[in-house]
């Protein structure tokens, strides 16, 4: 019986350790394939070249256009999601009745459960045509509508994480503010938001990380034209879209083109890894402060 206990514990341990193997696997796969890439394309070219044309005859391997596309859609998404999400968090915390909160929160969560390919369809067939009636110069594929729709998708992420942060501010602080005759608005922005700022920052960082890695919305609605621009009205290409684009085509394994998706992948991984760990670090500091 003791032996079987040990065996079971060993199996459970193994399941937990698999998660480490996954991380090792991800890093190994990304590194081993992109090392081959960087032997041909020097890192300096990868980082400074202003064009990304691996699939054309005149091949250029500058990651900047893809990074720019990614940052552009992400920027639009955060510009939409942060003000709306934060306002919702404050509204639900300070203004809304309990009943309202009980109804609204699960409804907002629905936004997060819709598959991203569905959002992509929405961006392409509803948002872009609608925006074109306002901005006639808007291209059929563009960063603007993909970014807006992505922003709508991550609203619940920012609103619920920020709400948690705001509601964990000690009651006494809020009561002190009300006690001095502050309005709800003054209490919110004068006391609650600053006190919850690290939690709110964490929610935004996680939202950025999510937006950077988002694939299907941008693959459908933002286009497949890598270009170094900050103009949201024209087609661009994100890192994720490029990986999808190559995956859909018929690129032979071992070719330089094949390796480009791993080079793009490792760039993406570095971004999200840094963002995630930044958020953990802030969260940890923040928890220490309140304990």
């Amino acid at each position: 019986m003791r032996a079987s206990e040990k065996i079971i514990e060993g199996l459970l341990w193994l399941s937990a350790v698999i998660t480490i193997l996954i991380t090792i696997g991800i890093i190994w796969v990304l590194l081993s394939e992109s090392i081959g890439f960087f032997q041909v394309v020097p890192l300096s070219e990868f980082l400074t070249e202003k064009e990304w044309t691996p699939l054309f005859a005149d091949k250029k391997f500058g990651i900047m256009p893809l990074v720019a596309g990614t940052l552009l859609t992400t920027g639009v998404a955060i510009a939409v999601a942060l003000p709306i999400g934060l306002t919702i968090a404050i509204y639900l915390n300070e203004y809304a009745h309990d009943r309202m909160r009980l109804v609204v929160k699960p409804l907002l969560e629905v936004l997060a459960t819709i598959p991203t390919v569905v959002y992509g369809f929405f961006a392409l067939t509803v948002v872009t045509p609608f925006l074109q009636t306002i901005i006639p110069s808007l291209a059929g594929f563009n960063a603007l509508s993909a970014g807006i729709v992505m922003g709508i998708m991550i609203i619940p992420m920012i609103s619920s994480l920020s709400e948690d942060a705001i509601s964990s501010v000690p009651r006494s602080l809020r009561e002190a503010a009300y006690g001095m005759g502050s309005t709800r608005l003054q209490t919110s922005f004068g006391v609650m938001v600053p006190a919850a700022s690290s939690g709110i920052v964490v929610s935004v960082i996680l939202a950025i990380s999510r937006a950077v890695g988002e694939t299907m919305i941008v693959a459908i609605a933002a286009g497949q034209q890598p270009r170094l621009t900050l103009n949201p009205l024209v087609p661009i290409e994100t890192i994720t879209t490029y990986i999808v684009q190559v995956s859909l085509g018929d690129v032979p394994r071992g070719s330089l083109e094949y390796k480009t998706i791993f080079a793009a992948g490792i760039t993406l991984f570095v971004f999200t890894f840094a963002l995630n760990n930044l958020s953990f670090w802030i969260k940890k500091k923040y928890q220490e402060k309140y304990d």
Partner: peptide
């Protein structure tokens, strides 16, 4: 292990695709 799992939860799905493709 815990930090690692939190990190995995934040890895974009397309990266898992690259892992699956190779492995």
């Amino acid at each position: 292990l815990e930090i690692n799992i939190a990190n995995l939860a934040g890895v974009p799905s397309i990266i898992y695709g690259l892992l699956g493709l190779e492995i």
